[in-house]
Design a protein around this nucleic acid. Structure first.
Lengths: 214, 214
DNA sequence: ATTTAATTGTTTATTTTTTGACAGACAAAT
DNA sequence: ATTTGTCTGTCAAAAAATAAACAATTAAAT
């Protein structure tokens, strides 16, 4: 089958396009050209056109792109035209923060349960999502169709929890622990390594200083 | 001056090298070759050598790299050989989570104050970091040398707060709000766009399914 | 001491990504 | 209806990133 793989760089730009298009839509803008969008986003028009044409011709020559239509198309490409059931592992500060994001829920990403090993937390709930003992997680997964597991626990605990998750058949992991997870090929992992982000910032702070000193 | 710009891709890999080297160091490993490290990290040895040689020759032919030494060198390159004073804007769930990360503090990143517009929170403190009124932020910045401002508030509020921060002379921003900040050239911004990360995951979930169906 | 194997730093080749260019298609104006 | 200007989709070129190759150097073995 003729279907080249889309590069990670392209995929990473799709949510950005979506964000800008969403803002335009909210402002009531009906159409936009790749040139206008490129000025807004500070990327080249060529890149926008080429990125989009990986997935189909959504524009019209002499006209441009219909904002609302393109917004929907990109959403569909990103898989935002369905719902996702999630569980959260770790009821700490980060987990609480994540479970509270209304924007995730609005996009169709819905937490169904929170698991923690701290018995003081078990039985409580955060925003109506029950906190359960980590030991009942396998049983829960058997009785509920869960699409995504969110890992918000220290790396020491993460590795073994992920092993369990994989054994239970989880196919997607959003990983906030500072470790590269070793999972089978059919399990997708998206990492959010905050400390790496912070280090990039500190690199750039000092790089900027050096430049200034030249 | 002869000093080509290091690409973002290279810089993004440095924290990963650091993480693996840190683990090796903790395990008491003294030396490692680019080949061994490449097996561990699932990247090519060539890339490791080329990345490192952007900054200098840290290895020795026929021997490899001294783990501890390389760890220190990369830390130095990333700017981890100094301390950073930070302020946090937004005492919500995410802000609380960020202020609680001991690993940031351990690396030299230290929160000095938290600012919020919610008067119910002002006067309180999180982990001994005082929560102050957002209005006193300019005065605080005049009296305290702050290196990094962490933005953990909704995008609607973020834009104007960032304007104020820039006016107060802040040169580095760690941005968790879902908006691209418009700042002068001499201000560095590192974005953590969680929703974009989640969308990449959902894209990959569905892509994986399609592959399987082929 | 000499040889052999290992391993870096760097050059060269390959691949991927990005940018530029332009023909064809459309919209709007006259 | 015809012309003019706009804008896409795609092809080609350029640039950047990655991987491979290899000479130079060192460590270890004999």
């Amino acid at each position: 089958m003729e279907e080249r793989l889309i590069s990670k760089a392209v995929i990473s730009r799709l949510p950005v396009y979506l964000r800008y298009l969403g803002e335009l839509k909210d402002e009531g803008v009906e159409k936009i050209s790749s040139k206008e969008l490129s000025d807004l986003m500070h990327v080249t028009a060529s890149q926008i056109r080429q990125d989009l044409n990986n997935f189909g011709g959504f524009g019209q020559q002499g006209y441009g792109y219909n904002v609302s239509n393109l917004y929907n198309e990109i959403g569909r490409i990103l898989g935002l035209d369905r719902r996702y059931n999630m569980i959260l592992i770790g009821a700490g500060n980060l987990g609480s923060a994540l479970s509270g994001y209304q924007s995730f829920e609005n996009r169709g990403f819905s937490f169904k349960a929170i698991f923690d090993s701290n018995h003081k937390l078990v039985g409580d709930s955060i925003r109506n999502i029950p906190i359960m003992d980590i030991n009942v997680m396998p049983a829960f997964l058997e009785n509920n169709k869960i699409d995504i597991a969110v890992i918000a626990i220290p790396k020491t605990a993460a590795v073994s929890v992920v092993d369990t998750l994989v054994k239970c058949g989880i196919k997607a992991i959003w990983n906030f622990s500072h470790v590269d997870l070793d999972v089978p090929e059919d399990v997708v992992v998206e990492n959010v390594h905050l400390s790496e982000s912070l280090m990039r910032l500190s690199y750039n702070i000092n790089e900027r200083v050096k430049e200034g000193a030249e």
